[in-house]
């Protein structure tokens, strides 16, 4: 096995283990930390796939901002009430994972690797290339997403300022 595949399988194994820990650990803060680990490993996977920009954004946005807010909420609210509905969530999660498995397993069996794999160049995942595709090819979806986020921000401000 060559080095890139070895690194991939090592990271993938760690990713699977930390994802399982997210599901099976009893303490919510421990689960959150396992999720942070999983997100960091995904970021490293992006870097090995010549997409350092996406990898670093993964760290900044998910590991650095969203998970901190998750932790914040967990610490304040201490969600033990969720434990009561555990069975419901287990059922819901099982159905979703089965649906995902139905898509993934045929792909593994058929082994549909691309017929003509294109080697990624060094500039493939660079900030310049990302910016070019965002602001030239996908400028309309980008702007729509920005407007949606703006609406969400204004909505949050309005909700927070509401008089009781």
């Amino acid at each position: 096995m060559d080095t890139p595949s070895l690194i991939f399988f090592l990271l993938a194994a760690l990713l699977v283990i930390s994802s399982l820990l997210v599901v099976f650990l009893r303490n919510v803060v421990h689960c959150a930390m396992a999720l942070v680990t999983a997100l960091l490993i995904i970021a490293i996977l992006f870097v090995t796939l010549h997409a350092p920009m996406v990898g670093i954004l993964q760290v900044m946005v998910y590991a650095g901002a969203i998970m901190v807010l998750f932790l914040f909420v967990i610490m304040f609210l201490n969600p033990v009430d969720l434990e009561r509905q555990r069975g419901l969530w287990w059922g819901f999660g099982t159905i979703l994972s089965l649906m995902l498995a139905c898509v993934l397993i045929p792909m593994f069996i058929n082994d549909e690797s691309p017929a003509d794999p294109v080697a990624a160049t060094d500039i493939f995942g660079s900030p310049e290339m990302l910016a070019k595709s965002l602001f030239n090819d996908f400028v309309l979806p980008f702007e729509i997403a920005s407007v949606l986020l703006l609406v969400a921000i204004i909505g949050a401000v309005v909700l927070a300022k509401r008089e009781h």
Binding site: V36, P52, V59, F72, S126, P127
Partner: peptide, 19 residues
């Protein structure tokens, strides 16, 4: 090629130690 973003990404991880 993402130098500054790396600095900010690592800086944003610094919160965990405290929390």
């Amino acid at each position: 090629n993402i130098g500054i973003l790396y600095v900010f990404a690592m800086g944003s991880l610094g919160v965990y130690g405290i929390v």
